[in-house]
Design a protein around this nucleic acid. Sequence first.
DNA 1: AAACTGAACGAACGATCGTGCTAACATCTC
DNA 2: GAGATGTTAGCACGATCGTTCGTTCAGTTT
Lengths: 213, 213
Amino acid sequence: MAGPTTDRRLLRGEETRRAVLRRAVEIASVEGLEALSIGRLATDLGLSKSGVFAGFGSKEELQLATVRAARRIFADAVLAPVADIPPGLARARALCEGWLAYSRTRVFPGGCFFFEVTAEFDARPGPLRDALADSARTWHRIVEDTLAEARTAGALRPDTDLGDLAFGLIALLEAANSQAVLHEEDTPYQRAGRLLLRLLRAEATDPADPALA
Amino acid sequence: MAGPTTDRRLLRGEETRRAVLRRAVEIASVEGLEALSIGRLATDLGLSKSGVFAGFGSKEELQLATVRAARRIFADAVLAPVADIPPGLARARALCEGWLAYSRTRVFPGGCFFFEVTAEFDARPGPLRDALADSARTWHRIVEDTLAEARTAGALRPDTDLGDLAFGLIALLEAANSQAVLHEEDTPYQRAGRLLLRLLRAEATDPADPALA
DNA sequence: AAACTGAACGAACGATCGTGCTAACATCTC
DNA sequence: GAGATGTTAGCACGATCGTTCGTTCAGTTT
């Protein structure tokens, strides 16, 4: 019964909402979620201010919807590609390299969307920070779970601290994004690529594992 | 001749400028440099909007002055304490631990000032980004130079890639700051502490060096 | 004492912000 | 057809933004 509606009024509304969010994630990844203004989105898209506003009900709801939209884009760009790869070291490595590519190719024009907006809201309690903290936790868990699979498969040492390892890998990815965007350089990505391989090798049962070549 | 002026009019102006900047770095470390508003600073400090404005000439100049003020605070909190420590591995480690303490003790209420505002401006060309890129480069160079001293002293292996090592260390520090502030946890600092020791040990000529105990 | 300098104030400017209202219009349900 | 429902536009609101201007007053210089 439920299923996707066929009501063309609702469909049109959803369509403009999507258009708004498409632009919103772009702006937010460069200038932050506070720089999102309803009037600006309206002008950019040739809509009326109240039209944009009506689609979300409040500025905060627009911001939250923007975060959700960014999560979908992130999942498509980083998570989906590694789904085919069998669990293990190779998948763990591909996940990291995929993230670097996601930053490097500017899936969001300002680099990683979440790096930008999390720094913006990490010290400001509220629904926005909660949503971003949840996103961060989810991402962290994905990395850790991927590493756990590799350990179960026997590719990582049994005494490896998965929390520390995930933390180290994510630290390298974010630092690469940050410095690459700031200085418009490619070197940070190369450094991160080398260092994350070293980190994985140090915990691998077989440092010569072909997945770490 | 030149020297610090004794003109009490100028001194008073400098004093209020300092008061404004003291509040400005607090706000910016939590909400970013765009959230700095002249009216708000004026109300917070019991001054008039035009009074605050006059002290800086433009909003952008106020933001730039805020960055400079933050650099001084950072230097006092992180750089000055390690000046006493003789060059070598011990100083390198102390620099990292000092940075973690600087973040942990909330020298700026929103965690590292530069992490917050660099994410805000890293994709927006202009004087602000230039100033922040310069700050980042300076800090990076300090870490690298400190490591270079340690290598000259024979504590680090001759083939160590100092750029990579500095990148790795800084990545750990910033990730710790980011996650600790976002989730209001202490664990990230502990993870960073453990991992940076491992990173240093891996490059040390003597992994059992007492400076890495 | 007169002339000058610099900090700070108060009032006003045009612009933009988020947010309400009401009306026009398309689309669905009956 | 009539009536309900949902999207979008137009207009106005109070608030706040950065900035300008003229004035006041403390302090320096001559």
